[in-house]
């Protein structure tokens, strides 16, 4: 992803978060999105991050960050203690992705989940050609990818239903722009806004 589309993606995701929300950002990286939400949308909250350098980067930005392995769950966080829980490009790294999805919905009144969409047409084409895709959104070779969960918009919809999560909104993201027509083929990233209770 180039800088411009990354920052456009960030703004699109940020726009899903109501002004003044209390936010928990799971796998918050360097705290860029949280920092943006605090600055531009008057939000407050915490990031959760495992990587030492990212934790330090969050602290340096003035973003509250809790160093925690998400595989250990969210026991630190009380039910419905956040307006919005973000899982941006986190799900694909999690062994317990389904448990974490439930936990995300438990802790937040709303959940926003974004992940690489494996059904994006260049990925389909690569697989048709007999090779795993290597793209801007999925830049790794199959043998060293940290993305241990690859799925599609339709896959995620099924998972959400299975866990009694209500989908408030879903769309794709491509080059910084939301894709609402046939996103499962036309967008490299999937975005869902969810709530407990089907």
């Amino acid at each position: 992803m180039n800088q411009a589309s990354a920052s456009a993606d960030l703004q699109t995701l940020a726009a899903l978060v109501p002004t003044g929300s209390r936010v928990l950002d799971l796998g918050c990286g360097t705290g860029e999105l949280l920092s943006y939400l605090m600055r531009e949308r008057g939000c407050s909250g915490y990031g959760v991050e495992l990587d030492d350098a990212n934790v330090q980067a969050c602290v340096a930005r003035g973003v509250n960050v809790i160093q925690l392995n998400l595989e250990e769950g969210l026991a630190l966080f009380a039910d419905s203690s956040f307006d919005v829980v973000l899982q941006i490009d986190t799900l694909q790294h999690l062994r317990n992705a389904e448990v974490m999805l439930r936990e995300t919905a438990r802790v937040g009144r709303t959940a926003i989940v974004a992940f690489p969409n494996f059904a994006h047409w260049p990925n389909r084409l690569a697989v048709l050609r007999g090779r795993m895709p290597v793209t801007k959104v999925l830049p790794y070779q199959w043998y060293d990818t940290p993305n241990i969960r690859v799925g599609t918009l339709r896959d995620f919809r099924a998972l959400a239903q299975r866990n009694q999560l209500r989908i408030l909104d879903e769309f794709g993201l491509q080059e910084g722009r939301p894709v609402r027509w046939w996103p499962n083929a036309r967008a490299s990233r999937a975005v869902f806004k969810l709530q407990r209770g089907s």
Partner: peptide, 17 residues
């Protein structure tokens, strides 16, 4: 950390390996 989170205090936590 949990006690501070429950009170919505500003807190950062680093667990150094």
């Amino acid at each position: 950390v949990k006690a501070l989170l429950d009170n919505q205090r500003d807190v950062s936590y680093a667990e150094i390996d």
